[in-house]
């Protein structure tokens, strides 16, 4: 487990931007809240930023791997392939949890400022919904990334996620006609978690066979 944590830390280090990630996150939050105070409708901005960041951040380590053969570097370090895969998952799920938690905090502050626009219960649902989407975003592409690498998997990844979201929304709509929203939502979250758990052994299997 310690080695998987190290791999996750290594993934985090590939996210290097000019500022520390937490500073960028706080700056974005501050801008959103200032806009909210100035009576801008920031909900769409929040959703755009969160989903954009959430989708791209988990791919950065793989992009970096593709560019510089970092998979090869990992193969030269004292970590097993299993630990590499688990480390990538740990990184991706960890990042998504941080983004979703941050979304909830910002939405809660926004809700406190303008409760008529965004009740706290809806803010919580939005954050949990984002996390659910992120889990699907990890669960579906990761096995393919492990199998064929970043460049070959990119188009397939996003096509797969879009198809899954469209099918999911239709399924939800049908489900929503017969059951309460919280029941439906609960099943969606459980489905995403099950998808994530199920994708781990597939990733382990495919990465163990892959030539680096």
């Amino acid at each position: 487990m310690r080695n998987s944590v190290k791999v996750a830390q290594l993934d985090l280090r590939t996210l290097q931007i000019k500022f520390p990630w937490w500073a960028l996150l706080l700056a974005t939050d501050a801008v959103i809240l200032v806009l909210a105070m100035l009576n801008f409708d920031v909900f769409a901005i929040i959703v755009g930023i969160v989903f954009g960041a959430g989708s791209s951040v988990v791919m950065v380590p793989f992009y970096s791997n593709q560019q510089r053969g970092v998979d090869g570097l990992l193969a030269a370090l004292p970590v097993t392939r299993r630990q590499v895969v688990l480390g990538h998952y740990l990184f991706a799920v960890g990042v998504q949890c941080v983004i979703a938690l941050n979304l909830f905090v910002v939405a809660a502050i926004y809700s406190f400022m303008r409760p008529e626009d965004l009740p706290l219960s809806v803010a919580a649902m939005v954050a949990l919904g984002a996390l659910t989407f992120f889990l699907v975003l990890v669960a579906v592409p990761f096995p393919f990334l492990m199998r064929v690498g970043y460049s070959s998997a990119t188009i397939g990844i996003y096509t797969g996620v879009i198809v899954l979201v469209v099918i999911g929304l239709n399924f939800l709509s049908a489900l929503g006609d017969n059951f309460s929203p919280s029941f439906t939502f609960g099943w969606v979250v459980a489905g995403a978690v099950a998808l994530l758990v199920g994708s781990v052994p597939l990733s382990l299997h495919w990465y163990s066979k892959r030539e680096l």
Partner: peptide
């Protein structure tokens, strides 16, 4: 190795 390296940044 000739084919591996470190992340760009």
């Amino acid at each position: 190795l000739d084919t591996t390296g470190f992340p760009e940044s």
